[in-house]
């Protein structure tokens, strides 16, 4: 299995079932490197299930079954030869609710490196600074690295989680509603950060906030009842969607 040169994630004829429930139906998508792709759609449409397939977060669900191929770095990621821990180094994830560990800010950022056996203080310090800078948090926390991460605001905690994700050097970052629990200023910081990060990473974001999808993404995929109805340049999808179903959803005429 190989990806096209400029493709970070490719899904081919992906079907997902939870028991007998068919939750993703024959999805085909190619996500370009260094792009931001947004998944939108009503609750239960399958968008979160799909994004969680990219780093095998659904493995823990007993009734989960997948057909078809998801190819990252020229490998089908559900292949037996794939080690999930290695996959998750390559494909990081940021969740809806910030989930810092009850440790210091510094230890949160370097946690992944320590797990990998990295104990060199200089390396850890340099990595922490770089990742906090990349996550646009350094200026706010540089004098408080030994404070508990739990003392940070929600927006700062979310950026800390992004810094923690960056520390293990992924090439892909998945974001599942990363700003839905944040105030508008923190949301704006996360959105600015996404735009900056795409220079070095491929980002897939699930969001219910359609204006957010419109603001940050290059391409948007609209999901409905397990189908990927439309996958288009974001500008096109929000100005002139080709499918009536998409138009009805984004204009609020749904259901």
């Amino acid at each position: 299995m190989t990806n096209e040169k400029n493709i970070a994630i490719e899904a081919k004829n992906v079907n997902v079932y939870y028991g007998t429930k068919h939750v993703l139906k024959d999805i085909n998508i190619a996500i370009e490197k260094n792009s931001v792709v947004a998944f939108i759609g009503p609750s239960g449409c399958g968008k979160s299930t799909f994004i969680r397939c990219f780093n095998r977060m659904n493995d823990f669900i007993e009734s989960f079954r997948k057909e078809g191929d998801i190819i990252i770095n020229n490998k089908e990621i559900y292949d037996r030869s794939i080690q999930v821990e290695e996959l998750r180094k390559e494909v990081g994830m940021v969740f809806q609710k910030p989930n810092p560990f009850p440790k210091t800010i510094f230890e949160n950022v370097v946690y992944g490196l320590r797990i990998q056996g990295e104990n060199n203080k200089k390396t850890l310090r340099e990595t922490a600074e770089k990742c906090l800078r990349d996550a646009a948090l350094w200026d706010e926390v540089k004098d408080d690295l030994n404070k508990s991460a739990l003392e940070l605001s929600g927006g700062q905690q979310q950026r800390l989680c992004i810094a923690r994700t960056l520390a293990v050097k992924p090439s892909i970052i998945l974001m599942d509603e990363p700003a839905s629990a944040l105030d508008p200023i923190s949301t704006s910081k996360i959105e600015d950060l996404i735009t900056v990060l795409k220079k070095d990473y491929t980002i897939v974001i699930v969001t219910h906030n359609m204006q957010q999808a419109a603001r940050v993404s290059d391409k948007t995929a609209f999901f409905y009842l397990g189908d990927m109805v439309e996958f288009e340049k974001t500008q096109t999808l929000f100005t002139n969607p080709q499918k009536e179903l998409t138009q009805n959803y984004i204009t609020g005429r749904f259901g």
């Binding site: 359609m210 419109a214 929000f238 969607p241």
Partner: peptide, 9 residues
């Protein structure tokens, strides 16, 4: 209302 698509047009 941040209209989009046909509504914005």
């Amino acid at each position: 209302y941040n209209p989009v698509a046909v509504d914005l047009r």
